[in-house]
Computed example of a mutant assay.
Amino acid sequence: MTPMIVSTAARPDLVPTTARWRWEAFFQDAMSLDEMLLMEAEATNSELMPTVLVLLEGEEPVGMVALCLDDLEGRPDLNPWLAGLYVADAHRGNGYGLRLIAELEGLARREGIDRLSLYTASAVDLYSKAGWSEVESFSKDEATYWIMQKAL
């Protein structure tokens, strides 16, 4: 069965899963899971941002990515953002991350967005493989992060 990609606007029942994934991967130290649920629920409206895309194998959610504003505090000049790319451990290595990136880029392009930004401490190689370029770095919490961009 070919995996398909849906938005949480079309499938709000997926919000508890995407909220848990994002919270576990990125936000445990910054907010509660309940706060993350509220934030993820914002993507169930008809607005472009935020949008959360979910990759499904059959009916099983296996990965996600988001399009949002203001992903990095103090850097509105870099809006909009690709954020929250996540693929469940058991499904990594299948190209799902690249598929989610490409789908989000296509959505942004169709909506007239000509450039996206992201930041990562650990996935520079993955994003480079998808055609993204490193534009600057910064340190936070004893880690180095790279800001990357892609012209669409």
Rank of each mutant, 00 (worst) to 15 (best):
L85C: 04
T51M: 03
S32Y: 09
S133R: 15
I147Q: 10
Y119S: 07
P3N: 13
G131R: 06
D77M: 03
D141A: 11
E103A: 11
L56S: 04
R110D: 15
M4D: 13
S128C: 10
T8E: 08
Q28R: 14
A10D: 13
V65L: 02
V135C: 11
A108W: 00
E42H: 06
G97N: 08
D34S: 11
I147H: 09
W21S: 01
T120A: 10
E59C: 03
L55D: 06
Y119Q: 08
L55S: 09
L126W: 05
F26C: 02
L107V: 13
T44Q: 04
F26Y: 10
K129R: 15
Y96F: 13
G95Y: 05
H91R: 15
L118Q: 06
L56T: 04
E47H: 12
E35R: 10
I5M: 02
G58L: 00
A108R: 00
L72R: 09
I101E: 07
M4S: 14
D89I: 06
W146E: 14
I5P: 02
A108T: 00
E134C: 12
E134P: 09
A19W: 00
S122F: 14
L38S: 11
D89S: 15
A30W: 05
S122N: 13
F26S: 02
W132Q: 02
T51N: 01
K129A: 15
G131H: 05
R110Q: 13
V54G: 04
A41P: 05
K129W: 08
L14W: 03
Y127G: 02
S46Q: 12
A108V: 00
V87G: 00
I5H: 02
A19F: 00
Q28W: 06
R75V: 07
P76H: 03
N94M: 14
D114T: 14
L38Y: 09
Y127T: 01
M1R: 12
S122H: 15
V52W: 00
T44E: 04
R109I: 06
D89R: 11
A90H: 10
P50S: 01
P61Q: 03
E111M: 09
E57R: 07
L56C: 05
K150W: 06
M148V: 06
W21K: 01
R110H: 08
S32P: 10
T18L: 02
T44M: 03
S137N: 12
L104A: 12
R115A: 13
Y119R: 04
V52T: 13
E40P: 03
R92C: 13
L126M: 11
A130V: 05
G97H: 07
A30H: 09
V124G: 04
E103C: 10
S117Y: 12
G97V: 06
A83K: 00
G112R: 08
V87P: 00
R75W: 11
L53H: 04
A25E: 15
L104F: 03
L48Q: 07
P50V: 01
Y127H: 02
L38A: 11
E136Q: 10
R20Q: 12
L67Y: 08
L85Q: 03
E40A: 15
L98G: 14
S128L: 07
R109A: 13
L100H: 05
E40H: 14
E42M: 09
L55N: 06
N94F: 13
W81Y: 08
A123W: 06
T144M: 12
T8W: 07
L107K: 11
L104S: 04
I101Q: 07
L38K: 15
